[in-house]
Every structure is written in structure tokens, then in C-alpha cells.
Write a protein that binds this DNA or RNA. Structure first.
Lengths: 204, 204
DNA sequence: AGATTTAGTTAGTATTAGCTTACACAAACT
DNA sequence: AGTTTGTGTAAGCTAATACTAACTAAATCT
């Protein structure tokens, strides 16, 4: 029988390019023509890999989320291997404070958030934020359980609330970056300080 | 001489309709046709009031921001008139916790945040967030200065950081609403708890 | 009334968007 | 070799979008 199907590989090859195009351009300006050009293929090809433009966008959301999760997982693994270097929550927070927004991932979330009347986009976003806050929440719980130091006990917001708040603070950093209102140093302080504050209510 | 120019009045009349259209539909789906239909006029007319679609969008951003500020101002005035009922910061927080997102204002900010490669849109956003965080910051300072109760002093994040964090938490509430991941009650808790926490580090 | 500017209506244009068709070539199999 | 399926290239199609032009009617003035 005939030549083998390389669709999956091709999709994997173009996915990062498509995702970064959506990140940089937003949904509207990431025209199918622009996407194809960046991929160095004809528009045609993209339509053999994904049903339509929206599918390319949704796939980009999933892809970028999973990239982030892989990154986090290495930090979680590192924390497990070497507990003395801080909890996973602390490491993620520190990493995020230093690199928040570097990937431009947040830009795609803004694009998605203004396309939420589409059920597929909304579903992808929901998936993403649900998993994100879930992971953050369990990391916060893990941190509060295992970390020494002055706990503020009952006064602390619940882990679920704190998780959403942490996510919000990170988003604020993104907005500060996007508008040019917050320098890299200030963004770092924002994520680190407010994040730590929400994590355990202590000044570090 | 000839008939008087009603341009300003007409603009003021249509502005809320245009703004709500952008809020509901996002930039992309708020076509000039759709905008005109909602306004009950021909597209033509809109182009006599604003230079182009982008100008309508930017005007909407400014308009919605100013609406919010007027709302806040009444709370600030009320706090000044009756200090016993809580500081302005507390009132704004409480109000926001209860009504966050009702206006759909946040939807336009998401749309704007994915159009930031346009200098005019970026400038409008920058203006908006700059004023917002400025007001929040001064309210936080006012609160910390005047409020009684257990202060956590040096451990608190600076007012500027706290202002951005509060804004972020509010945005997280918007995301939770938009994705359907946070119920009204949970959003309220999020804004109230995390907000209060960031405001003064006390459990209320 | 007549001049002059605004307001409303209708129609239209140029471009571009997303998406498809058609066809030649390449690679795997029997 | 021949068949079959996958891949690449080129062109094109339809619908919609942002934006304009042309014209009529209505106000306000002298």
C-alpha cells in the first residue's frame, strides 16, 4: 500500500509556529495567509492538518498550555528530588516571577478571552484555566502542608481562592508588560511579593 | 447661517450602544454593519462621528473607563461624607465584589489586550490602566493610613504592588466568569477575600 | 425666500478573509 | 512496473468587511 501518513508529524512540526503566530498577531491579524507564510507552506496544507482556522487556534491554546505544564513539571520534580531547595510552589513562583510572559503565551489567552462566544474556544479556555488553577491549588496546599515558618492559619484565604488570586496577579503582570506600564523589575516584584503574600501571608 | 452641528450630541447618544456592542461581540465580530444596526442608523453615520472603526473602539474604551470612574467617585464621596461606614477602599472593594463584571466592561479590555500592536489601542489601554492603578493605589494608601485594626506594617506589599495585585484578582474574577469556572458566589469571595487580604493582610 | 450647512438614505467599491478545487509529483506497497 | 495514497503548488471562489460617493431632505440663518 501507499506512502505513510505524515499528518501527525507535520502537525507537530507546524504547531509551534502557528501558536507563536497567534500569540504575536492575535486571532484577527493571524490570517490564514500569514499563518501559511510563517510556516513556509501554502494555506492549503494547513487545512489538511486542521479543519479550519478556529481549530488551529484551539490547538494552539492546548499546545501552549501543555508546554507550560511541562515546564512546571520539571520544577515539581526538582522540588521532590531536593526538598531543601524549597517547595514546588515556591519554585514555580520564583520561576514565574523571573520569566513571566517571556513566551508571549498570555497574548493568546487574551485573544481567546475575546472569542469566548465561540463554544470551542470557550471550552478550550475552560479546560486550560481549570487545569491551571487546579495545579496551582494543589501546589499551594502542598506548600502550606509542608513548609515551615509562620503560618497564619485560619486567616488565610482558602487554597482555591488563593490559586485564582495568584493567577490573577500573574495576569496583571502580563497586562503591565503589554501596556508598558510595568518594567521587568516591577513585574518580578509584583509576582514574587504578591504571590508569596497570597501563598502564606508572610513577608519572606 | 445653517443648521447647527449635532455631532457631539449624536456621539454621546450612540457611544453607549457602540461600547456595549464591542463589549458583547469583541472587536472582530463587532462589524461596522453590526454596530450600525444596533445603533439604528446607517454605517455611514458612524463614519461621520468617528474617523474609522478603530476610533470607535478607542472611544469605547475611554467611555467605559470613565463610566466606571464615575461609579467609584460616588463611593469615594460617600466614604468622605460618612467615614463610619468604612473607607473608600473598602466600599469600592465591596461594591466590586458584588457587581464585578456586570457591565461586561472587562470584555472590551480583553479585546483591547489582543489588539495592542495598534499604537492607538495600546495608548488607550495604557491610559486606562495607568489611571485605574493610580486610583486604586491612592485608595489603598488612604485606607492604610486611616483604618484602625491590626496592621501588618512592614510585611505588607507596597501600595503600588498591592494595587496591581488587586487589579489582577479582579481580572481573575472576570476570567472565572467568562469561562464559567467561577460562580457568582465564588467570584464574590475571590474579590472580597483576596482583595481584603491584599489591602491589609487581615481576615476581616 | 434663498443660501448654506447638516442629516438621512441608498448604493456601491476595493480588498481581503477563509476556504476549496484541480492537478502534477513523490513515495510506498504488490 | 503499476497502483494507490500522500504531499506540494497554483489558482480561484464566495462572502463579507471596512469604508465612500452621490444624492435628497431638513434646518437654521440673512
Amino acid at each position: 500500500m501507499p506512502r505513510p501518513n505524515r499528518t501527525k508529524e507535520k502537525r507537530a512540526e507546524l504547531m509551534p509556529i502557528v501558536a507563536s503566530a497567534f500569540s504575536e498577531l492575535g486571532y484577527r491579524k493571524a490570517t490564514t495567509k500569514a499563518l501559511a507564510e510563517r510556516c513556509g507552506v501554502q494555506e492549503n496544507i494547513l487545512y489538511r492538518l486542521w479543519a479550519d482556522k478556529k481549530a488551529m487556534f484551539v490547538a494552539s491554546i492546548d499546545y501552549l498550555f501543555e508546554s507550560t505544564m511541562r515546564q512546571w513539571q520539571t520544577l515539581i520534580d526538582a522540588a521532590e528530588a531536593d526538598p531543601a531547595g524549597g517547595t514546588a510552589a515556591e519554585r514555580i513562583l520564583a520561576y514565574d516571577a523571573a520569566h513571566r510572559g517571556d513566551s508571549g503565551f498570555y497574548r493568546i489567552t487574551f485573544a481567546a478571552l475575546s472569542e469566548t462566544d465561540d463554544p470551542d474556544v470557550r471550552a478550550a479556555l475552560k479546560r486550560m484555566y481549570s487545569k491551571f488553577t487546579g495545579v496551582i491549588e494543589s501546589q499551594i496546599e502542598g506548600h502550606r502542608g509542608h513548609a515551615a515558618g509562620p503560618s497564619r492559619g485560619g486567616e488565610l484565604p482558602g487554597a482555591a481562592v488563593a490559586a485564582w488570586a495568584v493567577l490573577g496577579v500573574a495576569t496583571a503582570a502580563d497586562i503591565g508588560r503589554e501596556t508598558g506600564l510595568l518594567s521587568a523589575a516591577k513585574r518580578k516584584r509584583l509576582v514574587a511579593e504578591a504571590g508569596r503574600w497570597l501563598l502564606e501571608g508572610a513577608g519572606g
